[in-house]
Amino acid sequence: MQLLVNIDVDDLARGIGFYQRGLGLRLARKLFDGTVAEMAGGATPIYLLAGAPGTSPGARADGRRNYRRRTMPVHLDFVVEDLEAAIERALEAGAELEDWPQDFAWGRQAMLSDPFGHGICFIEWKGEGYGAAMDGKRAVEAA
C-alpha cells in the first residue's frame, strides 16, 4: 500500500515556501491547474492542497477550513539528524514552537505547528529509536 499525505493550506506559494525552507522538502510538480503542490524529499510525498478559509473540505464535512491552531488526532513526525538545527530552520520559515525539546529513552522530540495550524513534531533518534520503548516481552514477540 502506498501512503500519500495531503495537507490543506490557505496559500499554496506560502505552503511551498515553508515546506521547502522549514523542512527541506522540494517542489516536485504542481497538479490540478496549480492548486496542488507535490513536495518530495521524504519517505512519502506530501501534497499541499490549496483551500480557502471557510470552504468545505468535502460534501459531507461538518466543518469549514480554518487555519488557526487546532488539536487533531493525526499529526506528522519528521525524523531529523539535528533537533536544534531543524527547529531553528522551521521557526525561521514560519513555524511556531509549542513545546521545548524533551528527552526520552528513544530520543528527543520537539512539538511545533506549521504556519497553517497543523501539528508537526521533530524527532531525533537515540540508539534503537522506538525500539528502546519496548518491554522485554514485546521485544521478543516483535523479533
Score class of each variant (00 low, 15 high):
L31F: 06
R108I: 01
E141F: 04
A43W: 05
L12M: 01
D77P: 13
I16K: 11
D103Q: 06
E98F: 07
Q20P: 09
E92I: 02
A40R: 15
A133K: 14
V140C: 10
D103C: 00
A93Q: 04
L27H: 10
G15M: 05
A61Y: 03
D135Q: 09
V5D: 09
T55L: 02
F78Y: 11
A143L: 10
A28N: 10
K126Y: 09
M134N: 04
S56E: 01
G15S: 04
V80N: 00
I123S: 03
Q109F: 12
T35A: 08
A43R: 12
M1W: 01
P53K: 00
A133H: 13
F18K: 00
L49A: 06
A133N: 15
D99N: 11
I87L: 12
N66L: 10
G17H: 13
N6I: 13
A85S: 09
G131W: 05
M1H: 04
G34C: 03
P53F: 05
G117F: 00
S113F: 08
A139P: 01
L31T: 12
Y19I: 03
W100H: 11
A43I: 07
E81K: 11
A133M: 15
A90I: 00
D10C: 08
R70V: 11
Y47G: 12
E128C: 06
A139C: 04
G127R: 05
G119K: 15
R65V: 03
I120F: 06
A43F: 04
D114S: 00
A139L: 13
A50P: 00
A90R: 00
D10Q: 14
Y19F: 08
R29Q: 15
D135R: 12
D62Q: 12
L23V: 08
D82V: 07
W106A: 13
L25A: 07
E98C: 12
F122T: 02
G42F: 13
K30Q: 12
A110Q: 05
E124Q: 10
R68W: 11
A105Q: 11
K30S: 07
E128L: 06
R89M: 01
G119V: 07
R60H: 11
E84A: 09
M39V: 08
R29L: 13
Y67W: 07
F122M: 01
G136R: 11
W125D: 08
R21I: 02
E81R: 15
L4G: 09
Y19D: 06
G22F: 01
R138S: 11
W106V: 08
K30V: 01
L48N: 02
L25I: 05
R70F: 10
L83Q: 11
A13Y: 12
T71Y: 14
D62N: 13
A143Y: 06
P101V: 09
R60Q: 06
A52H: 04
P45N: 09
L12K: 11
A40H: 15
N66C: 14
Y19G: 07
F18A: 01
L31E: 08
D8I: 07
P115L: 00
G41S: 15
L83D: 05
A105N: 04
I87Q: 07
G15V: 12
G127Y: 02
W125K: 12
F122W: 02
G22E: 02
P53V: 01
C121S: 11
T35I: 04
G119E: 06
A37S: 10
P73Y: 02
K126Q: 11
R60S: 10
G42A: 10
N66H: 14
